[in-house]
Nucleic acid binder design. Structure first.
Lengths: 343, 343
DNA sequence: GAAAAAATGTAGAACGATATACGTATAACA
DNA sequence: TGTTATACGTATATCGTTCTACATTTTTTC
């Protein structure tokens, strides 16, 4: 209300205490929902806090206790899937004192570590790493210092941090099964060059298993490319103009699938009759008619919600690891359903 | 290096001082690049800091000085344009001590204010608000408390904060001029319901001026919708099936344009022959062949870079306002260039 | 009704930096 | 040479909370 508050000045816990006629410690207790305050005192203090428009200073709280801030590490801002996750996170945080602050790693291990360090420097109470490229060892090191939850990192044996995932192997198998059922045979997979990502490993494994089970083992074909758009484009073009042109491509994420659709269109290929394309994540772009992209829904919102819940539990003291797994489902759209059944 | 560091323990400035054989104050000076340290002492202290892997605790610094953290407020995570801006911001911050932390407002004034408050609570040194829905008065209030720079908020008279913008009016005029030159007449604009956004006002103004100058005043037609995808879809459908179907639609942002393309395709309309579509922001999705979307490039990276630069200047003490404006340019793609010249 | 237990509140030392105020060398000037 | 600047360092109060230890009051138990 007091708009004229000058930069630098702030209502402190001391002023609240004076106004309420109690000790500073009492106000602090109310603030932290700590033990040892009567209802009367609590109401009294709350009234003063409200009257003075008091807001605790996170930096000061951080010196001894918590900052009620959790750090979220995202690989990049361009993949709309992360927005789905964040929706879930924010839903989970809504009725709590906690706030999320996001940092972007650009899928680089060094920047990621840098961000994590700076989040620790800023006394974040815990961290949520999404699609991290760190290996188990590094995550363990982080987890030893701060409560940690990882989304998109398969490690059911991890004991120091929690994980939240969809069943990537199953998701990939769903894709292959669907494509095979629609008559596609030469099903290729478009993956990412990055030996360490456990979700990639799982998806590739699922693809292989799916192909084997469908009797298409000899058609197994995994192309890998970096995330850089130009390289993706090049790899896609190479794949589609090569001698063994696949009749279906399973892309490890929607964004790549959109790029593949683009290249295919430029080459004059008809989707889905000349080529089927399937993505992963079921982001909002799949629904656009110009994409009509079949994709795997891993309900990012659920992932975010559960991860935030687990992280707060951990901050509050839980020490045993929990590993949450969502069952993926396929959302079929025209990009993989040819008009006539195929030969 | 010391991986065994236990949660809660940290190397402090005191230990560095002891190791280097100097006072705590000296170390602090080195840390802040403050006046009064010899090269020898600086080198000595730096060596100790490095040896002990010392990292200053932002919370503690924040109690008296700066936290070297700037808060970025984004309306939403789904618009890839913001990723372009963030690239620029991060480039500007790269060689500095500053780090960016992002908060998401979901285009709601209350959440936005909540985020700003919580950023102030967390002692951010300054704030960068992108596409804010706040009015001048509210921004002034914030600017009185913390250094502030706004991207996407036209207010050349503002004295308490800086602004960074592209020339939205000019951008919109470019669109109309281009469409008119390609033979389109019934050019509609797809805007956002939100009286307060100054960039919307400018773009609408540019659209109107462009139409008048092209002698198309009687075809002026602005449709507004919320950002919710379903509503956008409905409005687009209504616009395209109504009695006065436009032959071109200028959408206030790429994301809307993609949705319009989707609806048009579902209705069996040919783009660009039955309908031209133009977006704004020139995000990566414009380039996909299935979209081939003509758009206005306002070089988000530049905007982000300049904004971060201005913010740091402000944090360091500049008091007079600066207002940076980028000249937009149109990037023409097939979505607005019909094969044959139109009647 | 005394002793024990539980509830409620307070005082004051941390937390890890910054920054002011002040000494002491060293350099510059007359 | 003495005086004055200037450069370099240090001691320590301070920022706004949390939290431990303790004092006091109230409730429970036997």
């Amino acid at each position: 209300m007091s708009e004229k508050r000058v930069r630098g000045s702030r209502v402190t816990i001391r002023e609240v205490a004076k106004d309420a006629g109690v000790s500073v410690a009492a106000v602090s207790k109310v603030l932290r929902d700590a033990y040892g305050v009567s209802d009367a005192l609590r109401a009294n203090v709350r009234a003063s806090m409200h009257k003075l428009d008091y807001r605790p200073l996170a930096a000061a709280r951080g010196m001894r206790g918590q900052t009620y801030t959790i750090g979220i590490v995202l690989p990049d801002l361009r993949n709309p899937f992360f927005a789905d996750i964040m929706d879930g996170v924010n839903t989970a945080l809504e009725r709590t004192q906690y706030r999320a602050m996001i940092g972007i790693s650009h899928s680089s291990v060094e920047t990621e570590m840098g961000i994590v360090e700076s989040m620790i420097d800023r006394q974040m109470d815990g961290m949520l790493m999404i699609g991290s490229t760190e290996d188990r060892r590094n995550l363990d090191i982080i987890a030893k210092r701060k409560p940690l939850v990882a989304i998109g990192h398969h490690d059911p044996e991890a004991t120091t941090f929690d994980t939240v995932n969809n069943h990537d192997q199953q998701g990939a198998m769903l894709v292959v099964k669907h494509l095979a059922a629609n008559g596609y045979r030469k099903i290729a997979m478009f993956s990412l060059v990055s030996g360490t990502s456990t979700i990639l490993i799982q998806r590739e494994l699922g693809y292989r298993r799916g192909m084997m089970e469908a009797g298409l083992g000899k058609h197994i074909n995994i192309t890998s490319s970096s995330q850089i758009l130009r390289e993706v484009q090049l790899s896609a073009r190479r794949l589609l103009t090569g001698p063994q042109r696949p009749d279906a491509i399973f892309c490890w994420t929607d964004l790549i699938a959109l790029e593949v659709i683009s290249v295919a269109r430029e080459l004059g290929l008809d989707i889905p009759n000349d080529l089927a394309v399937v993505g992963y994540d079921n982001t909002m772009f799949c629904d656009f008619a110009q994409n009509s992209l079949t994709s795997i829904d891993q309900s990012g919102e659920q992932l975010g919600l559960q991860a935030a819940r687990l992280l707060i539990e951990r901050i509050k003291g839980r020490a045993e690891a929990e590993h949450f797994v969502v069952t993926p489902r396929i959302v079929v759209r025209p990009s993989s359903t040819p008009s006539a059944a195929r030969a």
